[in-house]
């Protein structure tokens, strides 16, 4: 196991420290997915790869979009666009909890000073028909990670259980750096020429995106985009040789458009269930199609 390293000096060092740590634990370090997602889990490297019989250890950074969480850049803790660091280990190693705690050492959290707790939180993402058991990990009362043992994805029982770790990077970095306002986080090392804060990079984006999400998103158009994406997804899955990967991207687009509608406050609880079901049906279809494809390819390879 890695020895405790010096506290990272910036947000980017912080990310690098996690990447190096998990790389040392045997994870392939992937890059972000380029379609809007609400959570790092939705990256196909998690949703699709946690299915099927092949082992799969990866880690990656994923920008996550939650339109309803926008605060016009005025709230020091909430963002509609932020980063998650995601680790998937399939099958989960026996000592995953210890590996996780080791990662806290790697980013400079001194466990003799901080109260680390695993508090029940059964994770579920109904839009992709996924659920698992696990915890929120608390550091001094703050949720710093989501820790889940996947049991079902896309409505299908998993063959091998994946251990999934999700770190909310900004929040965790703020904690480690003792910064109260996300926009004050040093993005790169403070002493470098033209050093940047998180605010330099993202503040204006938060202002404009919040304004769009809450005030200007044309709900009729967003609904049309939702429906277009849904239609495209279904069509791709209905092909003689289905294309689950592009279909899944459209399922994600449908999901994101639903999130915008939700942020605009035009979705009631009952309606919400219905939208979620529509997206879930898409995601399930993609997952099933993907698993079938994987099996066929595996048989093809062994034949």
């Amino acid at each position: 196991m890695t020895k405790t390293v010096a506290k990272p000096a910036s947000f980017q060092d912080f990310i690098l420290a996690l990447q190096i740590y998990w790389s040392q634990q045997g994870c392939a370090i992937l890059q972000p997915f380029d379609t809007e997602v609400g959570a790092g889990t939705l990256h196909p490297a998690t949703v699709l790869r946690s299915l099927g019989p092949k082992p799969w250890n990866v880690a990656y950074v994923q920008p996550s979009r939650r339109p309803a969480d926008g605060r016009y850049g005025e709230n020091p803790n909430r963002l509609q666009h932020y980063y998650q660091f995601q680790v998937i280990m399939k099958p989960n190693p026996v000592n995953l909890q210890e590996l996780y705690l080791g990662s806290l050492d790697a980013i400079g959290i001194d466990r003799t000073m901080h109260d680390i707790r695993f508090v029940e939180d059964d994770w579920e993402n109904p839009t992709v028909g996924a659920w698992g058991l696990g915890w929120e990990v608390w550091c001094d009362g703050m949720e710093v990670s989501q820790y889940t043992y996947f049991q079902q994805v896309g409505g299908l029982d998993v063959d091998l259980v994946s251990g999934e770790l999700t770190y909310g990077l900004e929040r965790l970095a703020m904690y480690v750096f003792g910064v109260d306002n996300v926009y004050d986080l040093p993005f790169n090392a403070p002493g470098t020429p033209h050093s940047l804060t998180y605010g330099d990079v993202f503040h204006q984006n938060e202002v404009e995106q919040s304004t769009y999400n809450f005030e200007y998103a044309n709900t009729d158009n967003v609904l049309k985009r939702f429906e277009f994406a849904e239609e495209e997804c279904k069509a791709l899955l209905a092909l003689d040789t289905p294309l689950p990967l592009p279909a899944y991207e459209h399922a994600l687009k449908a999901s994101h458009n639903f999130n915008i509608l939700d942020a605009r406050g035009v979705v009631s609880p009952t309606q919400r269930q219905e939208y979620i079901k529509r997206v879930r049906d898409l995601a399930k279809g993609c997952a099933q199609s993907w698993v079938e494809g994987e099996k066929a390819r595996a048989e093809g390879a062994s034949a």
């Binding site: 003799t112 000073m113 901080h114 109260d115 009362g141």
Partner: peptide
């Protein structure tokens, strides 16, 4: 769930922040 060398000062500060 922890006794610390600083008598919980860090833990208190963290919780207060949250």
């Amino acid at each position: 769930n922890l006794e610390t060398p600083d008598n919980g000062a860090t833990i208190k500060a963290g919780n207060a922040k949250v």
